[in-house]
Structure formats: C-alpha cells, structure tokens
C-alpha cells in the first residue's frame, strides 16, 4: 500500500507540476512588486519597511503586490526580469545596490515603470524611473539633539555598520545635532565592518559606555541588536534606527531615527493608481515631506521640554533655516 501511495504521488507530482504551470492567478488590478537587496525581507530595516508599505497599499488601494528576495548581488538583474515578466505595473528596487541594474533595465524596457529606494540619478533619471532618497541626516540630527540634551556625562556614541556615504549621513547628522545641543559633548564613533555581528556591536557599545558615554546611537542593522542589548544591561540609553525600535528595550531605547520607506512606497503607489507616476524625477523624502522623523514612542523617555525644542528644530529644518550636514566636509563646515 505504502509503495502504491508513493508511486501515485510521484506520478501526480509530475503531472500536476506540468499542468499547474498555467494556473498563476491573474489579477486585473494594478500590480506592484519589489526586489529586496541581500538583507532579505525581514531585515528589520528598509526591506521590511518597504514591504509593509506595499502591504498597506494592497489593503487600502486594493492593488496586487509581491516581492522577490535576493541572496547575492548577482540576483538583482534576474529578479527584475522575473517581475517584469510577471506583468507588474511598477517594479521597485529596494536599496542603492540596485542603482545600476535598475537604470540598465529601464533603458531596455521603456514601457515598464521602475522605482528605486536610496538612489538618485539626478539629471540622468530615465523617464520611466523614480529615484527615492531620504535625508537620513535630518532625523539623525534630531535624535542627536536629544542625545546632546539628555546626556549627563557629556559623552555620546555612534556605532555604524560599514563606512560608506549612506551610513555617513546618519553619522554626521547625529554629530551635528549633538554639537548643537551641547557643544562640549564628546562623541565616540566606531564602525563594526558588519551588519550582522551582534556580539561586536555589543562589545563596541560596552566600550563606549565604559568610557563614559551614556547614550549610543546606531546605524548598523543586526549589529545594533547588540548595541541595544548593551544599553539594557548597563542601564544606559540607546537610540534606534530605521524603525521604532523601542519595543526591543522599552526602558532604554529613548527614541529612534525613523526612515519611512513604507510611506514613500505607499505614496508612489497612490500616485501610480491616480495615474500621476512621477517618472523621470528624484523624490526626496526629508522631514518636510514626512518621509523621515523621530519615533512616536519618544515621549515615553524623552522629557517634554526637550521634545518641544526638537519640534522647533524640526520646523527650522523644514523651513530650510538649518541645513543638516551629511558628509565629512559639510560637517566640518557646520562646526565653523
């Protein structure tokens, strides 16, 4: 009996495999899909946030959504093609690593609409592409200001994942905020050369706390888990990044510099549904556009008067009165 079941199973498997080929559900409405970068869909960072944005669009705009994960850099191009063939109206590339790929594919497929997170083509943006970038320095600036105000030891820290321009935006925005609030504060800064090694993040944060820092901000993905853990243990403060990370340590993560990739994705979806897809342009999400901000849970640990000052500061950034530095050069300029 057992053998027969197996034999039947074999036959059914093959037959079904072949016949079920054509059964992919066709949806009549607009379809949007995204390719994740190698971080994967559950990176607790921009990939996950992007997918949340798409899911929200699915629910509220009743469109079809989907994603495709990349496990190596070489996967981006084939994944784009897969989504292209699946008949998506808009294909998202999540992450600057897909910059070149998106451009190449967009040139080859002028009828297909593409969009990318964290990459700007400037004047060379193809007409069927939208580049979306965030002013990460702005929320970093605000949390830096909070850190500068709240530090009792006059020492704060920054832990970065890997040193490249995107992460440096977090670093210099933060530093500028700290210096504005507290010109005497000392700022430790260290990179982990990893986005995964939580133990290293913890060791670096421990070192900073031991050297007297009482607030550490991280922009380091999985390494940041270790930073927050160290804050918990030493009963010091940490500042989260990308998403509201307060839930990881409700009494120690005072605030988070949020990057609302989900909002950006949702907004573009809305525009697409309305037929106003902003092809050929770069959309910048800063404080002004509501694309970045500080975590809504900040009120729990940050005193109200500091939050009021932050709100004023935010208004100044929005009005353009303050231009937040985001590179070593602009930061050096700022210090003057």
């Amino acid at each position: 009996m057992f053998k027969k079941i197996i034999a039947i199973f074999v036959i059914v498997l093959f037959v079904m495999s072949i016949f079920s080929c054509g059964q992919v559900k066709k949806e009549s409405s607009i379809k949007i899909a995204m390719v994740t970068d190698v971080g994967g869909i559950n990176d607790q960072s921009f990939n996950q946030s992007a997918w949340e944005g798409l899911k929200r669009a699915e629910k509220e705009l009743s469109i079809g959504v989907g994603y495709l994960e990349s496990s190596q850099d070489a996967d981006y191009a084939p994944n784009m093609e897969t989504l292209l063939d699946a008949g998506n109206d808009l294909i998202w590339g999540i992450g600057f690593k897909m910059g070149d790929t998106i451009k190449e594919k967009a040139m080859a497929n002028p009828d297909q609409q593409y969009a990318i997170i964290d990459y700007a083509y400037g004047d060379e943006t193809p007409i069927n592409v939208v580049g979306v970038v965030f002013k990460e320095q702005e929320p970093s600036f605000l949390v830096g200001y909070i850190a500068g105000k709240m530090t009792k030891a006059n020492k704060v820290g920054f832990v970065g994942g890997m040193k490249f321009p995107l992460i440096e935006k977090f670093e210099y925005g933060f530093k500028a905020g700290v210096k504005l609030a507290n010109p005497d504060a000392e700022i430790f800064s260290q990179y982990a050369d990893s986005f995964t090694d939580a133990a290293k993040g913890k060791a670096i944060a421990n070192q900073m706390y031991e050297n007297g820092a009482d607030i550490v901000y991280h922009a380091a993905g999985g390494v940041g888990d270790g930073v927050i853990e160290a804050a918990k243990e030493q009963d010091k403060f940490a500042i989260g990044v990308d998403r509201d990370q307060n839930s990881l340590a409700p009494e120690h993560v005072i605030t988070s510099a949020m990057k609302r990739v989900d909002n950006a994705i949702f907004n573009v979806a809305q525009l697409l549904v309305k037929g106003e897809f902003p092809g050929g342009t770069t959309v910048v999400y800063g404080l002004k556009e509501g694309g970045v901000g500080i975590a809504p849970t900040s009120y729990k640990l940050v005193p109200a008067d500091i939050l009021e000052e932050v709100a004023e500061l935010k208004a100044k950034v929005i009005s353009g009165e303050i231009v937040v530095p985001y590179t070593p050069d602009t930061y050096a300029e700022w210090l003057k």
């Binding site: 559950n42 986005f195 995964t196 939580a198 270790g226 990881l248």
Partner: peptide, 16 residues
C-alpha cells in the same frame, strides 16, 4: 548562549 545572553532574540544572520 547567543540568543539568550549576548542578544535577546533570533534573526537569520545571528549565527553567521
């Protein structure tokens, strides 16, 4: 010892 002491959760890259 990794997920209960060094950090307090599991994520896919925790053991790499």
């Amino acid at each position: 010892a990794m997920s209960l002491a060094i950090v307090s959760n599991f994520r896919p890259t925790l053991i790499s």
